[in-house]
Simulated scan of single mutants.
Amino acid sequence: MQPIYNVPSTQVKADPVQRFVAALIDGLVAYIPFFILMSINYRLAILGYIVVLGYTLTKDALPEVSGFLGGQSIGKKLMKIKVIKEDTGQGIVGDYGTAIVRQVSLMIPVFGLIDALMVLGDERKRFGDKWAKTIVVKA
Protein backbone atom coordinates (compact mmCIF):
# COMPACT_ATOMS: atom_id res chain seq x y z
CA MET A 1 0.00 0.00 0.00
CA GLN A 2 1.38 3.42 -0.99
CA PRO A 3 1.73 5.97 1.81
CA ILE A 4 -0.61 8.93 1.60
CA TYR A 5 1.18 12.24 1.49
CA ASN A 6 -0.51 15.41 2.64
CA VAL A 7 1.12 17.35 -0.17
CA PRO A 8 -0.76 19.98 -2.18
CA SER A 9 -1.82 18.57 -5.52
CA THR A 10 -0.01 21.42 -7.26
CA GLN A 11 3.37 19.97 -6.19
CA VAL A 12 5.25 18.02 -8.85
CA LYS A 13 8.19 15.81 -7.92
CA ALA A 14 11.55 16.99 -9.24
CA ASP A 15 12.96 14.87 -12.02
CA PRO A 16 16.22 12.96 -11.49
CA VAL A 17 18.20 15.19 -13.89
CA GLN A 18 17.28 18.30 -11.89
CA ARG A 19 18.33 16.55 -8.68
CA PHE A 20 21.67 15.35 -10.06
CA VAL A 21 22.54 18.76 -11.53
CA ALA A 22 21.59 20.44 -8.23
CA ALA A 23 23.83 17.97 -6.36
CA LEU A 24 26.70 18.70 -8.78
CA ILE A 25 26.30 22.46 -8.27
CA ASP A 26 26.18 22.01 -4.50
CA GLY A 27 29.33 19.91 -4.65
CA LEU A 28 31.12 22.67 -6.53
CA VAL A 29 29.82 25.32 -4.13
CA ALA A 30 31.09 23.30 -1.18
CA TYR A 31 34.44 22.08 -2.50
CA ILE A 32 35.79 25.07 -4.45
CA PRO A 33 36.38 27.09 -1.24
CA PHE A 34 37.96 23.98 0.31
CA PHE A 35 40.45 23.61 -2.55
CA ILE A 36 41.26 27.32 -2.49
CA LEU A 37 41.94 27.24 1.24
CA MET A 38 43.93 24.02 0.87
CA SER A 39 46.13 25.58 -1.80
CA ILE A 40 46.90 28.52 0.49
CA ASN A 41 47.73 26.53 3.60
CA TYR A 42 47.02 22.97 4.68
CA ARG A 43 45.83 24.26 8.07
CA LEU A 44 43.20 26.35 6.29
CA ALA A 45 42.07 23.13 4.63
CA ILE A 46 40.72 22.01 7.99
CA LEU A 47 38.57 25.14 8.13
CA GLY A 48 37.53 24.48 4.53
CA TYR A 49 36.54 20.92 5.37
CA ILE A 50 34.41 22.13 8.28
CA VAL A 51 32.65 24.54 5.89
CA VAL A 52 32.12 21.71 3.36
CA LEU A 53 30.68 19.43 6.03
CA GLY A 54 28.46 22.16 7.49
CA TYR A 55 27.07 23.19 4.10
CA THR A 56 26.58 19.61 2.95
CA LEU A 57 24.64 18.61 6.04
CA THR A 58 22.45 21.73 6.40
CA LYS A 59 22.14 23.17 2.87
CA ASP A 60 18.40 22.48 2.51
CA ALA A 61 17.51 24.12 5.83
CA LEU A 62 19.47 27.36 5.45
CA PRO A 63 17.44 30.52 6.09
CA GLU A 64 16.72 33.15 3.48
CA VAL A 65 19.64 35.50 2.92
CA SER A 66 18.86 38.69 0.96
CA GLY A 67 16.10 36.96 -0.98
CA PHE A 68 18.28 33.92 -1.68
CA LEU A 69 18.15 30.34 -0.37
CA GLY A 70 15.25 30.14 2.12
CA GLY A 71 15.19 26.37 2.53
CA GLN A 72 16.90 25.58 -0.76
CA SER A 73 20.53 24.77 -1.35
CA ILE A 74 22.26 26.88 -3.98
CA GLY A 75 22.00 24.00 -6.46
CA LYS A 76 18.31 23.46 -5.73
CA LYS A 77 17.64 27.20 -6.02
CA LEU A 78 19.30 27.31 -9.44
CA MET A 79 17.48 24.15 -10.59
CA LYS A 80 14.16 25.47 -9.20
CA ILE A 81 13.52 22.52 -6.89
CA LYS A 82 13.04 22.31 -3.12
CA VAL A 83 12.67 19.85 -0.26
CA ILE A 84 9.32 19.62 1.52
CA LYS A 85 8.01 17.49 4.35
CA GLU A 86 5.73 14.79 2.99
CA ASP A 87 3.22 15.11 5.84
CA THR A 88 2.73 18.89 5.72
CA GLY A 89 4.01 20.05 2.35
CA GLN A 90 6.09 22.71 4.13
CA GLY A 91 9.73 23.44 3.37
CA ILE A 92 12.45 22.46 5.82
CA VAL A 93 13.96 25.93 6.33
CA GLY A 94 15.37 26.05 9.84
CA ASP A 95 14.78 22.32 10.39
CA TYR A 96 18.43 21.31 10.62
CA GLY A 97 17.64 17.89 12.09
CA THR A 98 15.62 16.90 9.04
CA ALA A 99 18.28 18.32 6.72
CA ILE A 100 21.01 16.30 8.43
CA VAL A 101 18.96 13.08 8.37
CA ARG A 102 18.50 13.57 4.60
CA GLN A 103 22.27 13.81 4.03
CA VAL A 104 23.63 11.09 6.33
CA SER A 105 22.99 8.28 3.84
CA LEU A 106 25.07 10.05 1.17
CA MET A 107 28.09 10.14 3.46
CA ILE A 108 28.38 6.37 3.79
CA PRO A 109 30.85 5.10 1.15
CA VAL A 110 29.27 2.93 -1.59
CA PHE A 111 25.88 3.15 0.15
CA GLY A 112 25.81 6.83 -0.84
CA LEU A 113 26.06 5.91 -4.52
CA ILE A 114 23.24 3.39 -4.23
CA ASP A 115 21.21 5.98 -2.33
CA ALA A 116 21.78 8.62 -5.01
CA LEU A 117 20.67 6.23 -7.75
CA MET A 118 17.36 5.65 -5.98
CA VAL A 119 16.02 8.92 -7.45
CA LEU A 120 15.73 7.04 -10.74
CA GLY A 121 12.99 4.81 -9.25
CA ASP A 122 9.25 5.38 -9.39
CA GLU A 123 9.12 7.08 -5.98
CA ARG A 124 12.09 9.36 -6.80
CA LYS A 125 13.13 9.14 -3.16
CA ARG A 126 16.53 8.39 -1.68
CA PHE A 127 16.93 6.58 1.65
CA GLY A 128 17.63 10.02 3.11
CA ASP A 129 14.24 11.26 1.87
CA LYS A 130 12.50 8.19 3.31
CA TRP A 131 14.25 8.49 6.68
CA ALA A 132 13.54 12.23 6.92
CA LYS A 133 10.03 11.88 5.43
CA THR A 134 10.71 14.46 2.72
CA ILE A 135 10.06 14.87 -0.98
CA VAL A 136 11.98 16.95 -3.53
CA VAL A 137 9.55 18.91 -5.70
CA LYS A 138 9.67 21.60 -8.36
CA ALA A 139 9.65 25.02 -6.72
Rank of each mutant, 00 (worst) to 15 (best):
Q2F: 07
Q2T: 06
Q2K: 12
Q2Y: 10
N6W: 04
V7L: 13
V7R: 11
P8T: 10
T10A: 07
T10Y: 03
K13H: 12
K13R: 15
A14V: 08
D15K: 10
V17F: 04
V17D: 08
Q18L: 04
Q18K: 14
R19E: 03
F20C: 11
F20E: 05
A22N: 03
A23C: 10
L24D: 06
D26Y: 07
D26R: 06
L28W: 07
V29L: 06
A30R: 00
A30L: 01
Y31I: 03
I32P: 03
F34L: 07
F34M: 12
F35C: 12
I36M: 15
I36P: 01
I36F: 09
L37P: 06
S39M: 05
S39A: 11
S39P: 01
N41H: 11
L44A: 14
L44F: 10
A45M: 10
L47N: 06
G48F: 01
G48C: 05
G48D: 01
G48K: 00
Y49A: 06
I50W: 00
V52W: 00
V52I: 03
L53A: 11
G54H: 01
G54N: 11
Y55T: 00
Y55N: 02
T56N: 00
T58H: 03
D60V: 15
D60L: 11
L62P: 00
P63F: 12
E64Y: 13
E64P: 02
S66D: 12
S66F: 12
G67R: 13
F68Y: 13
G71P: 01
Q72G: 02
Q72H: 06
S73D: 04
S73C: 08
S73T: 15
I74S: 03
I74D: 02
G75F: 01
K76E: 14
L78V: 12
M79A: 14
M79W: 02
I81Q: 01
I81L: 07
K82E: 14
V83P: 00
V83T: 07
I84W: 02
K85C: 09
E86L: 15
D87L: 13
T88V: 10
T88L: 04
G89N: 06
G91V: 06
G91H: 13
I92W: 01
D95A: 06
Y96W: 13
Y96Q: 11
Y96A: 09
G97V: 07
T98V: 07
T98G: 05
I100R: 03
I100A: 05
V101N: 01
R102T: 04
Q103W: 10
L106F: 12
L106K: 08
M107T: 07
M107A: 06
I108E: 14
I108P: 12
P109G: 15
V110P: 13
V110W: 13
V110G: 15
V110D: 05
D115N: 08
A116R: 06
M118A: 14
M118V: 14
V119G: 04
L120N: 06
L120S: 09
G121I: 09
D122H: 15
D122S: 05
E123A: 11
R126M: 04
F127I: 13
G128V: 05
K130F: 08
A132M: 14
K133P: 01
T134S: 04
V137S: 02
K138G: 13
